[in-house]
């Protein structure tokens, strides 16, 4: 469902993403790992059509990110780093705006909103302006907006960053519950999370893929804990 072909992007002399290629199928939860500045977010931004690649391309559900970016954006849900939203809007009006923008018919809107507010546990802040919410709630509102159209592909940039342990557990449960029906790409720094929810992990360093396997197999191959493996590979 995600097919990345030799994707490259530079910022001046810095090669942020340097020819990465991989495929992710339905039912897979791919952990996209790497140290800060490795190119994870840049690669994700290209996959969601926010940033144009210098060369290479990718296909999401068969749609090309360069030639058919609207179809790509329709078929995926994206949670950006820091979960940006319109602070002055209430959660209710924000989710209605996302429904409008995604062309969800008014008849289906109530069900769609009710489904995501229950999934993301945001019912008690539904009428509150987003700027008054805690970081954890803001992130859950971000998750709700990317799930509202029930997309087949999810791209989540650090979905549990800023959440307390209970909230982290809930989000992991949520991702696990959706895993078999969707194709999920997660960027994270929390290595425990990768072992808990990811069926496969790709480690990126200086814009290149340096490891691609299941967390268990990577541990077996390199020896030690997953954190030690990560340090060894990205040193």
């Amino acid at each position: 469902m995600i097919k990345v072909e030799d994707l490259r992007r530079s910022f001046g002399p810095i090669k942020a993403v340097d020819g990465i290629s991989f495929e992710v199928e339905k039912g897979q939860v791919l952990g996209f790992l790497g140290p800060n500045g490795a190119g994870k977010s840049t690669a994700m931004k290209m996959l969601v059509c926010f940033l144009k690649p210098d060369s290479g391309t990718a296909k999401i559900c068969g749609h090309d990110i360069i030639k058919d970016s609207i179809a790509v954006r329709r078929s995926l849900g994206y949670l950006a780093e820091n979960a940006p939203a319109y602070g002055e809007m209430t959660v209710a009006s924000f989710l209605t705006f996302v429904c409008d923008a995604r062309g969800i018919a008014p008849a289906a809107r109530k069900d769609a909103i009710e489904r995501v507010i229950n999934m993301c546990s945001i019912k008690n802040v539904y009428h509150q302006p987003i700027e008054t919410l805690s970081k954890g709630y803001k992130r859950r509102v971000g998750l709700a907006q990317c799930l509202i159209h029930n997309p087949p592909v999810l791209i989540l940039d650090e979905p549990t960053d800023g959440l307390d342990p209970n909230q982290k557990y809930e989000v992991r449960q949520l991702i696990n519950s959706m895993a078999k029906d969707k194709c999920i790409l997660i960027s994270t720094h929390i290595l425990d999370e990768v072992e808990a929810i990811c069926t496969r992990s790709i480690i990126v360093n200086r814009g290149k893929i340096v490891a691609d396997d299941t967390p268990a197999k990577l541990k077996e191959k390199h020896g030690g804990t997953f954190e030690e493996v990560f340090r060894k590979i990205t040193r």
Binding site: I70, G87, G103
Partner: peptide
């Protein structure tokens, strides 16, 4: 400034 441009242009909006 707020970063919401990333949200806006990753919705299916030209």
């Amino acid at each position: 400034r707020s970063g919401s441009i990333e949200l806006l242009f990753t919705l299916p909006i030209t």
